[in-house]
Design a protein around this nucleic acid. Structure first.
Lengths: 157, 157
DNA sequence: ATCCTAAATGCATATTTATGCATCATGAAT
DNA sequence: ATTCATGATGCATAAATATGCATTTAGGAT
């Protein structure tokens, strides 16, 4: 039983494809070695808060909450600022502690919240420190990958 | 036979309400004097490129392209928001992560601190997130019970 | 007016998604 | 270890949504 892994795969598939039905998505997952039913997939999608939005090519496709708000925070100038604002990322237990330049923490936390990553339960920002709490079962590597994705330009960890 | 007028009414209804099914929407429209069937409504919604997105209260609701981002906060009256301000509670390890509407975290954390529960070591509040750290050995269920007590009527998870 | 065409709609039904219930797995409490 | 509670899942089916086809409607063109 590996629900977390399956959910992450579902996220990946939705992000990288235009999927217009659960049947279609299920087929992909089965092809990738997962074995379960549409009923479970329906529940998975609800967990991920996936929605269906209009698409020119395929009528309607699934999307994840993060994909919508994403571009709001993804201004190029902002990216540079954020990258430079981050001083370090360290891990402890299922948390990451991000040190930033004074005053940058809340802005960067906003950015991290913006991607609405399944792996991240939430963030709390002070003035120059952010605490990122990972969902249970998420590995340090996975968390780190999500964070570096959220913060373009990469980080020297 | 005034499709345009009907479409505008549909837009108005979707913008001002949280509608979770065509049946529900159709009922409203019929009550407003329109007379047609679900089949037509389905076609109307496709025309408007309406989509369905996740909603905390009603599961999934219809939305129109463009007003995607403001859906979470629309239609809330700010009076009973202390409880309504809570969007979700998740658990990881011996912590709970409470997501709130922006700005409400500290107020709600204050309330949680107020009950001085033995089970809770402390809370940290950002702008829209609260981290609740449980005493060692406290089960997730116990923590959840304490929190639901601290926040009457606030949580359904 | 008559005819023609394209859009709009209803009806019946297909397709898609959600869910009640039973079962099995997992982990905590005793 | 045993009992209990909780969560995850499948199965069967309900609920929700989309659609093929026939019919009607609204404008034009003659």
């Amino acid at each position: 039983m590996n629900r977390t892994k399956r959910l992450l795969e579902i996220i990946r598939l939705i992000k990288n494809n235009r999927i217009s039905s659960q049947e279609e998505l299920l087929e992909m997952l089965v092809k990738n070695g997962y074995n379960f039913t549409q009923a479970t997939l329906s529940r998975d999608l609800r967990l991920l808060k996936a929605g269906k939005i209009s698409d020119n090519e395929k009528g309607y496709i699934y999307m994840l909450p993060g994909e919508i708000t994403d571009n709001i925070f993804s201004g190029e100038n902002l990216d540079d600022t954020i990258t430079r604002g981050i001083l370090s990322i360290d891990y402890s237990g299922n948390m990451a502690v991000i040190k930033t330049m004074p005053g940058f923490a809340s802005g960067i936390a906003l950015r991290i919240d913006g991607i609405k990553a399944f792996e991240i339960l939430g963030t709390i920002a002070g003035d120059d420190t952010i605490l990122v709490i990972a969902r249970e079962g998420i590995s340090r590597q996975a968390l780190h990958r999500v964070l570096t994705t959220a913060i373009p330009g990469g980080v020297k960890s």
